[in-house]
């Protein structure tokens, strides 16, 4: 078994999470044949599995991705950036020329693509392992699964692992930074928690620590399947139902932070398109 790791526009966090599997890493270290972060190897050889981290932002990265597909028997979208666009995808709110102009103030030698795309826009993907980053536990399980040919899916939302219980209340404001009650559902306390629309498998570490889910594993099967269901409609609906409050989100883009350019979220009711349209017309999205 030969494993290669390729990095596009991302933060290397997924590779660090792979290193954080500690013992597992030492176990598979001799199988990793290409990983510029930890090994000297200039050329990607033919591999059984190639893990691709990061979204596609420049023409150079597109070439690297296409080469990776040619050399890989199985290509894995490793992390939310490559699976769903991730945080890198948020750069798509503005036109590439505008990004370069506002940040650098002059032209550079390199060309950006129009959006920061998830990799399945250009190549066929065999597995998606979303997460920002996927927890070391998920990564070990996935690698084990690949090695024995049986990969376990996580088709339930974060709520299923969270353990907090819903209490029907009446709130009059959204909470942001206060310390929550440790036993009660964050939504019913008035935090904007994406747990109910987000794919589980992470053991709900954030909500268990009193931090609302940010949606880093992307949408659940159910949200993907339903053309009329979307993060905002679902969250708005739930907060209204269990906490009796009509939320006005003043920063819509951050709620979609990890799924900006994924075509799985290309829905009629989604407000992603509205955000992008606004940003590209020169407004503040």
């Amino acid at each position: 078994m030969k494993i290669g790791i390729v990095k596009l526009a991302s933060c290397s966090g997924c590779q660090i999470a792979l290193l954080d599997t500690h013992e597992k890493l030492l176990e598979i270290a001799d199988k990793v044949v290409y990983a510029p972060l930890i090994k000297d190897a200039r050329e990607l050889p033919d591999c059984d599995v190639v893990l691709v981290e990061g979204a596609v932002r420049t023409e150079h990265e597109l070439e690297v991705l296409k080469r990776a597909r040619e050399r890989a028997k199985k290509l894995v979208a490793f992390g939310s950036c490559s699976a769903l666009g991730g945080i890198s995808g948020m750069g798509s709110i503005y036109k590439p020329e505008k990004l370069i102009e506002d940040i650098y103030g002059r032209d550079l030698d390199y060309k950006l693509l129009d959006f920061a795309y998830p990799i399945d826009r250009f190549v066929e993907v065999d597995y998606y392992l979303p997460g920002c980053p996927p927890t070391p536990e998920l990564i070990s399980k996935f690698i084990d699964g690949i090695l024995n040919g049986r990969v376990e899916r996580h088709d339930y939302p974060v709520c299923a692992e969270c353990g907090r219980l819903v209490v029907h209340t009446k709130i009059d404001n959204i909470k942001k930074t206060e310390l929550p009650d440790p036993k009660v559902c964050l939504l019913s306390q008035g935090y904007v928690c994406l747990g109910s629309v987000t794919r589980g498998g992470c053991r709900a570490i954030c909500t268990k620590a009193g931090v609302p889910c940010r949606g880093c594993r992307g949408p659940t099967d159910k949200v993907m399947v339903m053309p009329c269901k979307d993060y905002l409609t679902e969250l708005h609906d739930r907060i209204e139902r269990i906490a009796g409050f009509d939320v006005k989100f003043n920063d819509v883009a951050s709620i979609y932070a990890f799924v900006f350019t994924s075509d799985m979220m290309d829905k009629l009711v989604s407000r992603i398109k509205e955000v992008i349209r606004k940003g590209r017309r020169g407004g503040r999205a």
């Binding site: 998606y128 392992l129 376990e152 899916r153 993907m224 399947v225 799985m264």
Partner: peptide, 10 residues
């Protein structure tokens, strides 16, 4: 299309 893709999310 979506059905095929969903099955690959782990």
């Amino acid at each position: 299309y979506i059905e095929e893709k969903i099955e690959r999310f782990v």
